[in-house]
Simulated scan of single mutants.
Amino acid sequence: MNPYVEKLYGMATQAERVIVGLMSGTSLDGLDIALCRITGSGRRTALQLEHSCTKPYASDFRRQIQDIFAKRTIDQQQLCGLHALIGRTHGALVNEALLGWGVSPEQVDLIASHGQTVFHAPRWLTGDRRFPDSTLQIGDGDHIAVATGIITISDFRQKHVAGGGEGAPLAVYGDSLLFSHETETRLLLNIGGIANFTFLPASTAGGTGFATDVGPGNTLMNQYMQRHLGAEMDRDARVASSGTVNQNLLRALLEHPFFGLPFPKTTGPELFNLEYLHRAQQDSGTAGMENSDVMATLCAFSAAAITAAIQQVLNGNDPKARVYVSGGGLHNPLLMRLIRDGLPATPITAFDALGLLPDAKEAALFALLANETVTGSAAEAYPILGAPTVYMGKISFPG
């Protein structure tokens, strides 16, 4: 028997597995790494976060990804090369993190790698009926496995698409297993480059959970800061807080048909980018605004899209639901204030109230997906609207 297949078989029957989850989102700020100890599977899953960190991307590395990120016309050689380079880089960052934590690779059963999304193409967005829904994440799992010596599971989103989904959001699988509650309806909001949430009705109330993208989170604000102010982000919302929201531009930004699509739905920077902003400014006659006013309006745009989506869900379900927030947007004080102002009757708190660090949540949930790939049963998944019950991920051996 292949020794790695034998090892997989053995870990599937173990009481627990140690899995490193990796997540790099559309914000392109770095690699989130979460070392998790997971027992059980399915509805008997328990996850303990042992260590976590974010390894920032070097500026040159980030620029190389930005050259091909969410663009229809790119250098194919650069795409091909980055697939290998991102894999090697992520593997090196895992080795660095494990060394810092005093954990040897031999103590880790699996790595679960989300990879780096470079293009997301649901057919509703492309309008191209020649092709099915599709999505592309790069950062080759074989390179990660060889660099670390650890069996790696990667490329999770492809099976979701093949099974009839749009490839996102995937957090709903882990959210439903770990955070469903008997009496409390929960809405788990993640504000990364794109904002999305998982809706989990109280199990005693019945109903079906789902996950959906709702629009831009940080992506437009970050893109604008990088292009016009030479900064990676608007730290502490200093620029946006000094500006004034332009209501004409805000209305133009909110006019896209995406916002009227039913849940669940997906989107990405392929839609919400600086070209989208430019068109909205042209349509609303707001070109030439001060940078601070543009940033204030973009922050209001993200908040308005998020609050409108949450209101739409809660009005038809449990109005007493609680909202738990994770992702980089949690650290934007202006964005969080605007969301709370837009949902005055809804309790909103950081995700660590549920026992998991907000910045480690997505990486940890990919570790959980890898656990399900090895030892779970798709039949045990909670009913999730628009989410196929499939095993996700491709397995790469170190040798």
Rank of each mutant, 00 (worst) to 15 (best):
L35Y: 00
Y57R: 14
G163Y: 01
R337A: 13
G230T: 08
D234E: 09
L385R: 08
Q282V: 08
G230K: 12
T26D: 09
G192M: 05
A171Y: 03
L298Q: 11
G87K: 10
D142T: 14
D109E: 07
S176G: 14
L93S: 00
L170M: 15
I65C: 06
V245D: 00
P56G: 02
T54V: 12
R322V: 03
F119T: 04
S59L: 11
E182H: 14
A147W: 05
P262Y: 06
D109Q: 03
Y57C: 15
T13Q: 07
L98N: 04
M295C: 12
E16D: 14
T389W: 12
R123P: 01
K361L: 01
T54N: 01
N273F: 06
P56H: 04
P216W: 01
N248H: 07
L254I: 10
I310K: 02
A363H: 01
V94P: 04
Q247R: 02
G399N: 08
L98P: 12
T54P: 09
L354V: 02
T297G: 01
R130H: 08
Y276M: 00
D318T: 14
D142Y: 15
E6K: 09
P122H: 05
I74N: 14
G127C: 04
K265L: 10
S241P: 12
A379H: 04
G42D: 09
P122N: 03
E380K: 03
A353Q: 15
P358M: 03
A378P: 02
C80T: 08
N291R: 00
F197K: 13
A360V: 03
T185C: 11
L85K: 09
N190E: 06
V374T: 06
T26R: 10
F301L: 06
K394H: 12
G355W: 00
N190P: 00
Y224G: 05
H181T: 09
S24A: 01
L253F: 02
H83D: 05
L47D: 11
H256G: 02
I65D: 04
E106S: 13
D32Q: 12
T73N: 12
A205F: 07
T73S: 15
F131W: 06
V18S: 01
A280K: 07
E275V: 15
A211K: 13
G30R: 12
S242R: 09
G268W: 03
Q282L: 11
G243T: 05
